[in-house]
Design a protein around this nucleic acid. Sequence first.
RNA 1: GGUCCGUUCGUCUAGUCAGGUCAGGACGCCAGGUUUUCAUCCUGGUAACACGGGUUCGAAUCCCGUACGGACUACCA
Length: 516
Amino acid sequence: MPLKNKKMSDNNIRVRFAPSPTGPLHIGGVRTALYNYLFARKHGGKFILRIEDTDQTRFVPGAQDYIIEAFKWCGIEFDEGVTKGGDYGPYTQSERKAIYKQYAEQLITSGHAYYAFDTSEELSVKRAAFEAEKKTFTYNASERLNMGNSLSLPKEEVDQLLSNNTPFVIRFKMPDEERVVMNDLIRGKVEVNTKVLDDKILFKSDGMPTYHLANIIDDHLMEISHVIRGEEWLPSLPLHVLLYRAFGWEEPEFAHLPLLLKPDGNGKLSKRDGDRLGFPVFPLQWKDPKTGEISNGYREEGYFPEAFVNMLALLGWNPGDERELFSLEELIEAFSIERVNKSGAKFDAEKAKWFNHQYLIKKSDKELAEAFAPILLKKGILADKVFVVKIVGLIKERATFVADLWDQSSFFFKRPEDYDKKAVKKRWKAASYNQMTELKEILLKTEPFTSENTEKAVKSWIEENEYGMGAVMNAFRLLVVGALKGPHLFDIIALLGQEETLERITLGLQELGRKE
RNA sequence: GGUCCGUUCGUCUAGUCAGGUCAGGACGCCAGGUUUUCAUCCUGGUAACACGGGUUCGAAUCCCGUACGGACUACCA
């Protein structure tokens, strides 16, 4: 088992989710956060939210609030972080700016990093030149001496450049040829030779650190024990490990999560896939502040947060037995990082709906009726609460979303405005008019007007007269519902009441008339 | 191109670490049943170890190779 590190056994489990506020959080990000959260809770540790906004050019207003609101909706709680506080703050990297500079300089002093003065333009010219010769330019031991930096330039010139306030970056001095052996909790041993790695920029000319530097420093300072993040970070792992070693810091455990893939074809799930295939890619609706473009969210689509979280948790992880329905508490109990899959998972919108259906039918009739109330109100329907609760109980098995409740129950609230044409053709026969007229008399005499009583009375009347059960019941349903659908008919009329049922039959008789 | 990661039914996956039941479950799909209708529900069915070598009495499982897929390859995270 890879999880034998002492950090697993003590109470110092600290994990973080560190998004950058560049837009809405997509469901892959939510899942990463969820796994971090489950891991922290499982081990009695802390879960931290840190905002990585070192790229000032990509800042999007509202993104941070969106992220926080999304987690609130999901029921994922942070112990420390932005808006929450804690002993390791500040939790926004732009507010930690001063911290990074000194560590970058420390690396220069220790010989693990150096100043570089190459401009972006010079760099792209260099890359283009290499490419023209079918070679790959790598800014590392092989080429760094041919570039403009404090390793290649005379000391006096470097000092001159620095005192002139010439823009510079700080680069990591990647060891020439060294095997770096790393461990990943999900994938096991990963090995790479530093000769294929480059001297990554740690500190940008705008005075901000890059992700690589900031994340190492913050994880160390915040005493993060386990870094659980997306697989897209795996190629950067050697750099990060080397950085810990350069600082002389103990490195955390790492776990790189498999990607969420698009449902059709291959590749990482993206915003576009949602638009294209018609399912949300984001937890909450998002309106782009620049373009005004709206992206759909699970919340707005009608998903229950419990269903959403459950569905997400099972995408890349499973408990090892055949359970599929988990509350957040049960997920915490069952979760283990070793049971996270290695390979990417294609998102399945159909299964997502199935999860929501499961949660919907599990909810009490009362709770569903309350969720249904605003929809009824919007339709201009004022209905008795008890009445709605009973209706919901009859139809909830047929619904995936709360909004479906209306399609399944509108006939309870409104008399048929028209009668399904196909149904009329199939079920409104020559005998129907007289039979329904007789039926009215039977129902008029049935007291009390319960489902059981009416069913008994109607069925024995049918038998006595040797009418066909199917013929009578379908015509009856047609008059009451307006179509051949819906739950047990006697349950429907019991809820509708005697008066309303008789009225609907009368109106239906008028409307459909005698055939022939 | 280079580096790294991955590969079991259409999809999510169990089984792989400690080789040995007709490769199990769920979603979807199909069929049958129940029913006054539709939906649900119940029962059954469909369908997979990427390929090629090797090790072994025996390989989905261990080893090597190939193919395919993905991620990364910015003064973005």
